[in-house]
Design a protein around this nucleic acid. Structure first.
Lengths: 192, 192
DNA sequence: CGATTCTTTGAAAACAGTCAATCTGTGTGG
DNA sequence: CCACACAGATTGACTGTTTTCAAAGAATCG
Protein backbone atom coordinates (compact mmCIF):
# COMPACT_ATOMS: atom_id res chain seq x y z
CA UNK A 1 0.00 0.00 0.00
CA UNK A 2 2.87 2.32 0.76
CA UNK A 3 4.47 1.55 -2.61
CA UNK A 4 2.02 3.73 -4.47
CA UNK A 5 3.09 6.63 -2.31
CA UNK A 6 6.75 5.83 -2.82
CA UNK A 7 6.25 5.83 -6.60
CA UNK A 8 4.42 9.11 -6.38
CA UNK A 9 7.20 10.72 -4.38
CA UNK A 10 10.09 9.50 -6.46
CA UNK A 11 8.35 10.72 -9.60
CA UNK A 12 8.06 14.20 -8.09
CA UNK A 13 11.50 14.73 -6.53
CA UNK A 14 14.62 12.94 -5.35
CA UNK A 15 14.33 11.51 -1.89
CA UNK A 16 16.88 9.41 -0.07
CA UNK A 17 15.77 6.02 1.16
CA UNK A 18 15.96 7.31 4.70
CA UNK A 19 13.66 10.19 3.84
CA UNK A 20 11.18 7.92 2.13
CA UNK A 21 11.22 5.64 5.13
CA UNK A 22 10.65 8.59 7.43
CA UNK A 23 7.72 9.90 5.43
CA UNK A 24 6.14 6.47 5.25
CA UNK A 25 6.71 5.73 8.92
CA UNK A 26 4.69 8.81 9.83
CA UNK A 27 1.73 7.65 7.71
CA UNK A 28 -1.26 5.69 8.93
CA UNK A 29 -2.75 3.37 6.28
CA UNK A 30 -6.52 3.10 6.31
CA UNK A 31 -9.18 1.37 4.24
CA UNK A 32 -12.53 3.01 3.71
CA UNK A 33 -15.63 1.33 2.39
CA UNK A 34 -17.86 3.17 -0.05
CA UNK A 35 -19.86 5.84 1.79
CA UNK A 36 -17.58 5.70 4.81
CA UNK A 37 -16.50 9.06 6.20
CA UNK A 38 -13.02 10.39 6.76
CA UNK A 39 -14.45 13.50 8.46
CA UNK A 40 -17.99 14.58 9.16
CA UNK A 41 -18.86 18.25 9.33
CA UNK A 42 -18.70 19.42 12.91
CA UNK A 43 -15.75 17.18 13.77
CA UNK A 44 -12.16 18.30 13.60
CA UNK A 45 -10.36 17.08 10.50
CA UNK A 46 -7.31 15.47 12.10
CA UNK A 47 -5.74 14.12 8.94
CA UNK A 48 -4.50 14.88 5.51
CA UNK A 49 -4.95 11.95 3.16
CA UNK A 50 -3.04 10.65 0.17
CA UNK A 51 -5.24 8.47 -2.01
CA UNK A 52 -3.66 5.13 -2.90
CA UNK A 53 -6.69 3.79 -4.74
CA UNK A 54 -10.39 4.56 -4.93
CA UNK A 55 -11.93 8.03 -4.70
CA UNK A 56 -13.34 10.53 -2.24
CA UNK A 57 -15.13 13.83 -2.21
CA UNK A 58 -15.06 16.91 -0.01
CA UNK A 59 -18.46 18.53 0.17
CA UNK A 60 -20.62 20.84 2.21
CA UNK A 61 -24.31 20.60 2.96
CA UNK A 62 -26.36 23.78 2.69
CA UNK A 63 -29.45 24.85 4.63
CA UNK A 64 -31.71 22.98 2.18
CA UNK A 65 -29.78 19.74 2.80
CA UNK A 66 -28.28 20.08 -0.67
CA UNK A 67 -24.74 18.76 -1.05
CA UNK A 68 -22.10 20.75 -2.95
CA UNK A 69 -18.84 19.12 -3.91
CA UNK A 70 -15.73 21.23 -3.45
CA UNK A 71 -13.17 18.65 -4.45
CA UNK A 72 -12.75 15.16 -5.80
CA UNK A 73 -9.71 13.02 -5.14
CA UNK A 74 -8.60 9.85 -6.89
CA UNK A 75 -5.32 7.91 -6.91
CA UNK A 76 -2.29 10.10 -6.24
CA UNK A 77 -4.36 13.06 -5.10
CA UNK A 78 -4.37 14.66 -1.71
CA UNK A 79 -7.46 15.55 0.24
CA UNK A 80 -8.34 17.12 3.57
CA UNK A 81 -10.60 19.81 4.95
CA UNK A 82 -7.79 22.32 4.76
CA UNK A 83 -9.27 24.94 7.06
CA UNK A 84 -10.02 22.49 9.86
CA UNK A 85 -6.73 20.64 9.42
CA UNK A 86 -4.82 23.89 9.61
CA UNK A 87 -6.66 25.54 12.48
CA UNK A 88 -7.86 22.56 14.52
CA UNK A 89 -11.40 23.96 14.48
CA UNK A 90 -14.42 21.85 13.53
CA UNK A 91 -14.75 21.20 9.82
CA UNK A 92 -17.64 22.70 7.93
CA UNK A 93 -17.16 20.18 5.15
CA UNK A 94 -17.36 16.39 5.12
CA UNK A 95 -15.19 13.87 3.31
CA UNK A 96 -16.45 10.45 2.33
CA UNK A 97 -15.43 7.63 0.03
CA UNK A 98 -17.17 7.30 -3.33
CA UNK A 99 -15.78 3.81 -3.82
CA UNK A 100 -13.91 1.38 -1.59
CA UNK A 101 -10.75 3.34 -1.02
CA UNK A 102 -7.28 3.09 0.49
CA UNK A 103 -5.59 6.15 1.93
CA UNK A 104 -2.49 7.10 3.83
CA UNK A 105 -3.09 9.55 6.66
CA UNK A 106 -0.88 12.03 8.45
CA UNK A 107 -1.89 13.83 11.60
CA UNK A 108 -1.17 17.53 11.83
CA UNK A 109 1.72 16.86 14.19
CA UNK A 110 3.29 14.21 11.95
CA UNK A 111 2.78 16.38 8.95
CA UNK A 112 4.44 19.42 10.47
CA UNK A 113 7.28 17.36 11.87
CA UNK A 114 7.94 15.52 8.65
CA UNK A 115 7.94 18.78 6.71
CA UNK A 116 10.45 20.21 9.11
CA UNK A 117 12.70 17.19 8.92
CA UNK A 118 12.51 16.39 5.23
CA UNK A 119 13.23 19.61 3.40
CA UNK A 120 12.62 18.19 -0.06
CA UNK A 121 9.17 17.23 1.09
CA UNK A 122 8.57 20.67 2.47
CA UNK A 123 9.50 22.19 -0.87
CA UNK A 124 7.23 19.75 -2.69
CA UNK A 125 4.36 20.59 -0.38
CA UNK A 126 4.85 24.30 -0.97
CA UNK A 127 4.76 23.72 -4.70
CA UNK A 128 1.59 21.67 -4.45
CA UNK A 129 -0.03 24.27 -2.22
CA UNK A 130 0.75 26.95 -4.78
CA UNK A 131 -0.67 24.91 -7.61
CA UNK A 132 -3.70 24.08 -5.54
CA UNK A 133 -4.38 27.76 -4.99
CA UNK A 134 -4.01 28.45 -8.71
CA UNK A 135 -6.45 25.65 -9.51
CA UNK A 136 -8.88 27.09 -7.01
CA UNK A 137 -8.66 30.55 -8.56
CA UNK A 138 -9.11 29.14 -12.03
CA UNK A 139 -12.16 27.22 -10.96
CA UNK A 140 -13.63 30.30 -9.34
CA UNK A 141 -13.02 32.27 -12.50
CA UNK A 142 -14.73 29.61 -14.58
CA UNK A 143 -17.68 29.62 -12.21
CA UNK A 144 -18.28 33.37 -12.29
CA UNK A 145 -17.55 33.84 -15.98
CA UNK A 146 -18.57 30.75 -17.94
CA UNK A 147 -21.86 28.99 -18.60
CA UNK A 148 -22.61 25.59 -17.13
CA UNK A 149 -22.06 24.05 -20.54
CA UNK A 150 -18.62 25.58 -20.93
CA UNK A 151 -17.71 24.50 -17.43
CA UNK A 152 -18.76 20.96 -18.16
CA UNK A 153 -16.59 20.84 -21.28
CA UNK A 154 -13.66 22.27 -19.38
CA UNK A 155 -14.19 19.69 -16.68
CA UNK A 156 -14.21 16.85 -19.17
CA UNK A 157 -11.09 18.21 -20.85
CA UNK A 158 -9.26 18.74 -17.58
CA UNK A 159 -10.21 15.45 -15.94
CA UNK A 160 -10.80 12.93 -18.71
CA UNK A 161 -10.29 10.08 -16.22
CA UNK A 162 -12.80 11.49 -13.84
CA UNK A 163 -15.97 12.06 -15.65
CA UNK A 164 -16.55 8.50 -16.79
CA UNK A 165 -15.99 7.28 -13.29
CA UNK A 166 -18.19 9.68 -11.36
CA UNK A 167 -21.96 9.48 -11.68
CA UNK A 168 -23.53 12.48 -13.35
CA UNK A 169 -25.18 13.88 -10.26
CA UNK A 170 -21.81 14.21 -8.51
CA UNK A 171 -20.34 16.12 -11.41
CA UNK A 172 -23.42 18.33 -11.43
CA UNK A 173 -22.90 19.01 -7.76
CA UNK A 174 -19.26 19.90 -8.44
CA UNK A 175 -20.19 22.23 -11.29
CA UNK A 176 -22.94 23.91 -9.32
CA UNK A 177 -25.92 22.93 -11.48
CA UNK A 178 -28.83 20.55 -10.99
CA UNK A 179 -28.53 16.97 -12.29
CA UNK A 180 -31.33 17.63 -14.75
CA UNK A 181 -29.51 20.59 -16.22
CA UNK A 182 -26.33 18.59 -16.65
CA UNK A 183 -28.27 15.77 -18.22
CA UNK A 184 -29.68 18.23 -20.77
CA UNK A 185 -26.27 19.70 -21.42
CA UNK A 186 -24.96 16.23 -22.16
CA UNK A 187 -27.80 15.51 -24.50
CA UNK A 188 -27.44 18.84 -26.19
CA UNK A 189 -23.72 18.55 -26.87
CA UNK A 190 -23.45 14.80 -27.23
CA UNK A 191 -20.48 14.77 -24.87
CA UNK A 192 -20.60 11.81 -22.52
CA UNK B 1 5.06 55.27 3.16
CA UNK B 2 6.93 52.39 4.70
CA UNK B 3 5.41 53.14 8.10
CA UNK B 4 2.06 51.65 7.16
CA UNK B 5 3.84 48.41 6.37
CA UNK B 6 5.78 48.56 9.61
CA UNK B 7 2.56 48.99 11.56
CA UNK B 8 1.01 46.12 9.73
CA UNK B 9 3.92 43.83 10.48
CA UNK B 10 4.28 44.67 14.15
CA UNK B 11 0.56 44.10 14.63
CA UNK B 12 0.89 40.61 13.15
CA UNK B 13 4.06 39.31 14.80
CA UNK B 14 7.20 40.34 16.65
CA UNK B 15 9.98 41.47 14.40
CA UNK B 16 13.34 42.88 15.44
CA UNK B 17 14.26 46.29 14.14
CA UNK B 18 16.89 44.66 11.97
CA UNK B 19 14.29 42.36 10.44
CA UNK B 20 11.90 45.22 9.79
CA UNK B 21 14.70 47.15 8.15
CA UNK B 22 15.58 44.16 6.01
CA UNK B 23 12.01 43.62 4.86
CA UNK B 24 11.59 47.29 4.06
CA UNK B 25 14.92 47.56 2.29
CA UNK B 26 13.83 44.85 -0.13
CA UNK B 27 10.64 46.72 -1.01
CA UNK B 28 10.13 49.09 -3.91
CA UNK B 29 7.64 51.90 -3.21
CA UNK B 30 5.43 52.87 -6.11
CA UNK B 31 2.57 55.25 -6.74
CA UNK B 32 -0.17 54.33 -9.16
CA UNK B 33 -2.74 56.68 -10.60
CA UNK B 34 -6.31 55.53 -10.96
CA UNK B 35 -6.59 53.11 -13.92
CA UNK B 36 -2.85 52.53 -14.02
CA UNK B 37 -1.78 48.93 -14.37
CA UNK B 38 0.49 46.92 -12.12
CA UNK B 39 0.37 44.01 -14.58
CA UNK B 40 -1.43 43.54 -17.85
CA UNK B 41 -2.53 40.11 -18.98
CA UNK B 42 0.14 38.60 -21.21
CA UNK B 43 2.98 40.16 -19.24
CA UNK B 44 4.81 38.40 -16.46
CA UNK B 45 3.73 39.54 -13.01
CA UNK B 46 7.10 40.39 -11.48
CA UNK B 47 5.85 41.72 -8.17
CA UNK B 48 3.79 41.04 -5.14
CA UNK B 49 2.24 44.22 -3.76
CA UNK B 50 1.32 45.41 -0.30
CA UNK B 51 -1.29 48.16 -0.44
CA UNK B 52 -0.38 51.21 1.65
CA UNK B 53 -3.38 53.23 0.55
CA UNK B 54 -5.89 53.19 -2.26
CA UNK B 55 -7.30 50.08 -3.92
CA UNK B 56 -6.71 47.68 -6.78
CA UNK B 57 -8.39 44.80 -8.49
CA UNK B 58 -7.21 41.57 -10.09
CA UNK B 59 -9.43 40.61 -12.98
CA UNK B 60 -9.60 38.58 -16.15
CA UNK B 61 -11.19 39.43 -19.45
CA UNK B 62 -13.23 36.74 -21.17
CA UNK B 63 -13.79 36.09 -24.86
CA UNK B 64 -16.69 38.56 -24.93
CA UNK B 65 -14.45 41.31 -23.52
CA UNK B 66 -16.30 41.02 -20.22
CA UNK B 67 -14.22 41.67 -17.12
CA UNK B 68 -14.48 39.43 -14.07
CA UNK B 69 -12.95 40.47 -10.78
CA UNK B 70 -11.12 37.78 -8.86
CA UNK B 71 -9.87 39.93 -6.02
CA UNK B 72 -10.00 43.38 -4.52
CA UNK B 73 -7.25 44.84 -2.37
CA UNK B 74 -7.35 47.90 -0.14
CA UNK B 75 -5.03 49.17 2.60
CA UNK B 76 -3.11 46.39 4.34
CA UNK B 77 -4.03 43.78 1.75
CA UNK B 78 -1.70 41.89 -0.53
CA UNK B 79 -2.22 41.44 -4.22
CA UNK B 80 -0.45 39.77 -7.12
CA UNK B 81 -1.24 37.44 -9.98
CA UNK B 82 -0.19 34.46 -7.90
CA UNK B 83 0.22 31.99 -10.72
CA UNK B 84 2.41 34.25 -12.83
CA UNK B 85 4.40 35.47 -9.84
CA UNK B 86 5.08 31.92 -8.76
CA UNK B 87 5.89 30.40 -12.14
CA UNK B 88 7.31 33.36 -14.06
CA UNK B 89 4.89 32.63 -16.91
CA UNK B 90 2.74 35.37 -18.49
CA UNK B 91 -0.23 36.39 -16.37
CA UNK B 92 -3.72 35.65 -17.57
CA UNK B 93 -5.11 38.29 -15.26
CA UNK B 94 -4.52 42.02 -15.03
CA UNK B 95 -4.15 44.25 -11.99
CA UNK B 96 -5.02 47.92 -12.03
CA UNK B 97 -5.66 50.69 -9.55
CA UNK B 98 -9.26 51.66 -8.77
CA UNK B 99 -8.11 54.87 -7.08
CA UNK B 100 -4.82 56.67 -6.78
CA UNK B 101 -2.84 54.10 -4.87
CA UNK B 102 0.46 53.55 -3.10
CA UNK B 103 2.01 50.11 -2.95
CA UNK B 104 5.18 48.43 -1.82
CA UNK B 105 6.54 45.89 -4.27
CA UNK B 106 8.80 42.89 -3.89
CA UNK B 107 10.29 41.02 -6.82
CA UNK B 108 10.20 37.24 -6.74
CA UNK B 109 13.90 37.14 -5.90
CA UNK B 110 13.62 39.64 -3.05
CA UNK B 111 10.55 37.89 -1.78
CA UNK B 112 12.15 34.46 -1.70
CA UNK B 113 15.33 35.80 -0.18
CA UNK B 114 13.57 37.78 2.50
CA UNK B 115 11.44 34.78 3.41
CA UNK B 116 14.55 32.68 3.75
CA UNK B 117 16.32 35.23 5.89
CA UNK B 118 13.48 36.40 8.11
CA UNK B 119 11.87 33.27 9.50
CA UNK B 120 9.10 35.10 11.31
CA UNK B 121 8.09 36.60 8.01
CA UNK B 122 8.17 33.21 6.36
CA UNK B 123 5.84 31.86 9.02
CA UNK B 124 3.53 34.84 8.62
CA UNK B 125 3.44 34.35 4.89
CA UNK B 126 2.56 30.68 5.29
CA UNK B 127 -0.26 31.62 7.59
CA UNK B 128 -1.58 34.20 5.16
CA UNK B 129 -1.33 31.75 2.29
CA UNK B 130 -3.35 29.21 4.23
CA UNK B 131 -6.02 31.74 5.09
CA UNK B 132 -6.09 32.94 1.53
CA UNK B 133 -6.76 29.41 0.32
CA UNK B 134 -9.55 29.00 2.85
CA UNK B 135 -11.12 32.27 1.73
CA UNK B 136 -10.92 31.11 -1.86
CA UNK B 137 -12.64 27.82 -1.04
CA UNK B 138 -15.33 29.59 0.91
CA UNK B 139 -15.98 31.95 -1.94
CA UNK B 140 -16.20 29.08 -4.39
CA UNK B 141 -18.66 27.32 -2.12
CA UNK B 142 -20.78 30.44 -1.89
CA UNK B 143 -20.73 30.78 -5.66
CA UNK B 144 -21.88 27.25 -6.42
CA UNK B 145 -24.38 26.98 -3.59
CA UNK B 146 -25.91 30.38 -2.87
CA UNK B 147 -28.06 32.78 -4.85
CA UNK B 148 -26.72 36.11 -6.05
CA UNK B 149 -28.74 37.85 -3.36
CA UNK B 150 -27.29 35.73 -0.56
CA UNK B 151 -23.81 36.28 -1.94
CA UNK B 152 -24.33 40.02 -1.99
CA UNK B 153 -25.41 40.04 1.64
CA UNK B 154 -22.46 37.89 2.61
CA UNK B 155 -20.17 40.25 0.74
CA UNK B 156 -21.58 43.27 2.53
CA UNK B 157 -21.29 41.51 5.88
CA UNK B 158 -17.74 40.33 5.22
CA UNK B 159 -16.42 43.57 3.74
CA UNK B 160 -18.42 46.42 5.24
CA UNK B 161 -15.63 48.85 4.34
CA UNK B 162 -15.55 47.74 0.79
CA UNK B 163 -18.98 47.94 -0.63
CA UNK B 164 -19.54 51.65 -0.03
CA UNK B 165 -16.26 52.39 -1.65
CA UNK B 166 -16.53 50.29 -4.79
CA UNK B 167 -18.99 51.19 -7.53
CA UNK B 168 -21.80 48.73 -7.94
CA UNK B 169 -20.68 47.37 -11.27
CA UNK B 170 -17.37 46.25 -9.78
CA UNK B 171 -19.08 44.38 -7.00
CA UNK B 172 -21.39 42.79 -9.57
CA UNK B 173 -18.35 41.69 -11.52
CA UNK B 174 -16.87 40.22 -8.36
CA UNK B 175 -20.06 38.37 -7.48
CA UNK B 176 -20.51 37.03 -11.00
CA UNK B 177 -23.78 38.76 -11.88
CA UNK B 178 -24.70 41.58 -14.24
CA UNK B 179 -24.85 45.14 -12.92
CA UNK B 180 -28.57 45.26 -13.62
CA UNK B 181 -29.18 42.19 -11.50
CA UNK B 182 -27.21 43.60 -8.60
CA UNK B 183 -29.06 46.89 -8.91
CA UNK B 184 -32.35 44.98 -8.64
CA UNK B 185 -31.10 42.98 -5.69
CA UNK B 186 -30.25 46.20 -3.91
CA UNK B 187 -33.62 47.66 -4.63
CA UNK B 188 -35.37 44.51 -3.57
CA UNK B 189 -33.60 44.15 -0.23
CA UNK B 190 -33.01 47.81 0.50
CA UNK B 191 -29.38 47.04 1.36
CA UNK B 192 -27.06 49.71 0.04
C1' DC C 1 -22.04 73.58 -17.68
C1' DG C 2 -20.81 69.47 -20.45
C1' DA C 3 -18.85 65.01 -20.34
C1' DT C 4 -17.95 61.00 -18.22
C1' DT C 5 -19.14 57.45 -15.28
C1' DC C 6 -22.37 55.03 -12.75
C1' DT C 7 -27.08 53.43 -11.67
C1' DT C 8 -31.75 52.37 -12.48
C1' DT C 9 -35.74 50.70 -15.04
C1' DG C 10 -38.65 48.11 -18.40
C1' DA C 11 -39.61 44.43 -21.58
C1' DA C 12 -38.33 40.29 -23.86
C1' DA C 13 -35.58 36.26 -24.31
C1' DA C 14 -32.50 32.81 -22.57
C1' DC C 15 -31.38 29.96 -18.95
C1' DA C 16 -31.61 27.00 -14.98
C1' DG C 17 -34.33 24.99 -11.24
C1' DT C 18 -38.24 22.20 -9.56
C1' DC C 19 -41.49 18.56 -9.58
C1' DA C 20 -43.07 14.38 -11.18
C1' DA C 21 -42.92 10.55 -14.04
C1' DT C 22 -40.45 7.20 -16.58
C1' DC C 23 -36.52 4.58 -18.12
C1' DT C 24 -32.15 2.11 -17.52
C1' DG C 25 -28.91 -0.86 -15.75
C1' DT C 26 -27.08 -3.44 -11.70
C1' DG C 27 -27.11 -6.45 -8.25
C1' DT C 28 -29.38 -9.24 -4.55
C1' DG C 29 -32.24 -12.61 -2.52
C1' DG C 30 -35.68 -16.04 -3.21
C1' DC D 1 -32.80 -17.74 -13.20
C1' DC D 2 -36.20 -14.51 -12.33
C1' DA D 3 -38.27 -10.77 -9.81
C1' DC D 4 -37.61 -6.99 -7.43
C1' DA D 5 -35.40 -3.16 -5.40
C1' DC D 6 -32.37 0.51 -5.95
C1' DA D 7 -29.46 3.99 -7.68
C1' DG D 8 -28.79 6.69 -11.49
C1' DA D 9 -30.32 9.08 -15.80
C1' DT D 10 -33.59 11.12 -18.72
C1' DT D 11 -37.66 13.74 -20.13
C1' DG D 12 -41.62 17.04 -20.11
C1' DA D 13 -44.12 20.84 -18.30
C1' DC D 14 -43.83 24.62 -15.49
C1' DT D 15 -41.83 28.26 -12.64
C1' DG D 16 -38.57 31.43 -11.43
C1' DT D 17 -34.32 33.86 -12.03
C1' DT D 18 -30.84 36.17 -14.71
C1' DT D 19 -29.26 38.18 -18.89
C1' DT D 20 -29.66 41.17 -22.63
C1' DC D 21 -30.80 45.27 -24.93
C1' DA D 22 -32.19 49.82 -24.90
C1' DA D 23 -33.16 53.96 -22.71
C1' DA D 24 -33.12 57.22 -19.33
C1' DG D 25 -31.94 59.07 -14.76
C1' DA D 26 -28.32 60.43 -11.03
C1' DA D 27 -23.86 61.72 -9.63
C1' DT D 28 -19.25 63.40 -10.10
C1' DC D 29 -15.55 66.01 -11.96
C1' DG D 30 -12.96 69.05 -14.64
Amino acid sequence: MVEAFRNYLTAKASFTDAELAQLEAAAIPRKLKRHQFLVRSGEVCHYIAFVVCGSLRLYRTDEHAEEHILRFAIENWWITDAESFRTGLPAVGSIDALEDTQVLLWSKESWDRVKQEVLTFNALENQLAGRNLDAQVNRLYATISHTAEERYHAFVAAFPDFYRRMPLHLIASYLGVSRETLSRIRKHTGLY
